[in-house]
């Protein structure tokens, strides 16, 4: 159990997939215009990463090392197909909003990276812990970026139709650049610099 918690906890900060490993940047920048989309992407990554890590850890002793990458990719692609159909049937709005970034989870480096670097060498339970930790780390990063972009970029905060607050001045004149593509780069760049300045993360 101690090991389980250790593998889980390291994904949050030490190997945070977005801020430390700089993996999976494409979906991170694209879906963080609103908290809804960020949570939807997290759910997709959770299902695929949990499934991929479990399956890869389960078959790790039977897979010949020379063909392992194609096998992992087929496993991941099948899981993504399932999630794609699942979202299309149950959350059509979210499916529409995530667009091509849902099928693109296949080439999200976080998932193949964890399958190759962790699950192919570790037992199932540890791989599940790793998948959960990495997903929570991914979610934290996505929530941090999307709440900044949504709150300042639209002037108000609402999640799944539930309205929290509207900012006094920004409510009328939001910083619209933050919801534009350029704003995504800006918010992540400033957050990374902030983490390095405060010592949460090491500088280069």
């Amino acid at each position: 159990m101690g090991n389980f918690m250790k593998e889980f906890a390291k994904g949050l900060i030490i190997t945070n997939p977005v801020f430390v490993l700089a993996l999976g940047l494409c979906p991170t920048l694209a879906v963080t215009t609103s908290i809804n989309n960020a949570l939807g992407m997290t759910l997709a990554v959770l299902i695929v990463l949990l499934g991929a890590n479990t399956i890869v850890a389960a078959i790790r002793n039977f897979v010949p090392s020379i063909t392992r990458i194609p096998i992992f990719i087929v496993v991941i692609a099948s899981l993504v197909t399932m999630v794609d159909l699942l979202f299309a049937a149950n959350f059509p709005d979210l499916h529409e909003a995530l667009g091509i970034f849902l099928p693109l989870v296949v080439v999200n480096c976080i998932i193949l990276g964890r399958a190759e670097a962790f699950a192919s060498k570790n037992p199932i339970l540890h791989s599940v812990a790793d998948a959960l930790g990495i997903t929570v780390g991914f979610m934290l990063a996505l929530l941090m970026i999307s709440s900044i972009r949504q709150t300042l970029g639209t002037g108000s905060l609402s999640v799944f139709g539930f309205h929290f607050f509207t900012l006094p001045i920004l409510g009328k004149q939001p910083i619209a650049i933050l919801v534009l593509p350029a704003g995504a780069f800006l918010v992540i760049g400033l957050l990374l610099a902030l983490f390095r300045r405060t010592g949460v993360m090491k500088s280069d």
Binding site: A182, G189, L192, S203, D204
Partner: peptide, 17 residues
Amino acid sequence: KAMKGLPIAFIIATLLG
């Protein structure tokens, strides 16, 4: 110092964007 490397690259990307 905190901006060196990846953070400043993101800022440049903002300007290009």
